[in-house]
């Protein structure tokens, strides 16, 4: 498969090639100007530190970059109907989901009443046949699961769809567009559809962490923990920066749920050793796991 950088000018036409030669522009050369996203970020003051100095140093002397930023602003192509429809779909899907949640929230008020009724039934039941009741409870108990997975340290939170600027860099737009569309069911909380949409994408782009990450998380929500651990392991291997920690955290959760505490501990150790948003939780999780281990040994 061609590397991303080799895709440059894959659609070059003969007359263009002729003109480029006349202009002395080598075909397939390396751009010396910073990409547009960095230029715009620089002009809007969104850059800091070395990056700001680096881009600023170039822009100060490069007339081509100055003209590009000026002209890009002057083009002013308004929000298209299609773009508006896509934004609307994302925002309003979440909005209606929230409202439905609000509508159902009143059910919580019924809990005390339901609890009282259940207690009454149980009391009568126990009175009628204690032995029988105990046998029934045992048969309906959930399958044994790692205790640690139920601990508050390991609460499963849905990671929001976080964008990453490099995703939209040159050559990645096709992946970004496919990903953004495949994430619609994920955002709407339909994890079974999310798995179906993300799985082919993760196969097509095995070097891209995002599709694998959201696939793994969706699989956790679908209680398919073994598959989740596999997806998240692959995601961790290719992810960089904060996404890598995120992949590892959810990998640890998947491993715990899948009944692989030793693997989970190894994953948590990596997180606990490196600075990052999951460091504290990972260290706390490790402690909890080891105390569980000691408890089971001394038992």
């Amino acid at each position: 498969m061609a590397k991303e950088t080799d895709l440059r000018w894959s659609d070059l036409e003969p007359e263009e090639e002729t003109l480029l030669k006349e202009l002395g522009v080598p075909i397939g050369g390396r751009p010396v100007c910073p990409p547009l996203d960095l230029l715009q970020a620089f002009h809007s003051g969104a850059l800091s530190g070395a990056l700001r100095r680096h881009i600023g140093g170039h822009v100060e002397h490069c007339r081509v970059c100055q003209i590009l930023s000026r002209d890009f602003a002057a083009m002013d192509v308004p929000l298209t109907k299609e773009e508006d429809a896509r934004i609307r779909a994302r925002v309003f899907k979440a909005h209606s989901g929230r409202q439905q949640l609000r509508r159902w929230q009143f059910l919580w008020l019924l809990i005390p009443a339901v609890a009282a009724a259940v207690l009454a039934v149980i009391a009568i039941w126990m009175h009628v046949g204690r032995q029988n009741h105990a046998r029934q409870l045992a048969s309906s108990a959930p399958p044994p699961q790692s205790l640690a997975a139920g601990s508050p340290v390991f609460t499963l939170e849905k990671p929001p769809v976080a964008l990453s600027v490099p995703l939209l860099m040159r050559g990645r737009q096709a992946y970004a567009a496919a990903l953004s569309s495949a994430l619609e069911p994920y955002e709407a909380g339909d994890y079974s559809s999310a798995v179906k949409r993300l799985d082919p994408l993760a196969r097509k782009y095995p070097q891209r962490a995002e599709a694998l990450f959201y696939l793994g998380v969706s699989e956790i929500f679908e209680a398919n923990y073994g598959a989740a651990a596999e997806s998240l392991k692959r995601a961790s291997a290719v992810a960089r920066g904060s996404l890598a920690s995120e992949c590892r955290w959810y990998l640890a959760l998947a491993e715990l749920h899948a009944g692989q505490p030793a693997n989970a501990a190894a994953t948590l150790e990596i997180l606990c050793e490196a600075a990052g948003v999951y460091q504290k939780r990972a260290c706390a999780g490790l402690k909890e796991l080891s105390s569980k281990n000691k408890a089971s040994f001394s038992r």
């Binding site: 440059r8 480029l20 751009p31 100007c33 990409p35 547009l36 002209d71 890009f72 192509v77």
Partner: peptide, 26 residues
């Protein structure tokens, strides 16, 4: 401006026509 943006994105930044379309909304 629109011509200059297309020219620069293609011949300085090396974008394909599709990428320019995605960037500019054209």
């Amino acid at each position: 401006p629109v011509h200059r943006v297309c020219l620069t994105l293609r011949y300085v930044h090396g974008m394909t026509r599709l990428e320019i379309a995605e960037t500019t909304g054209l």
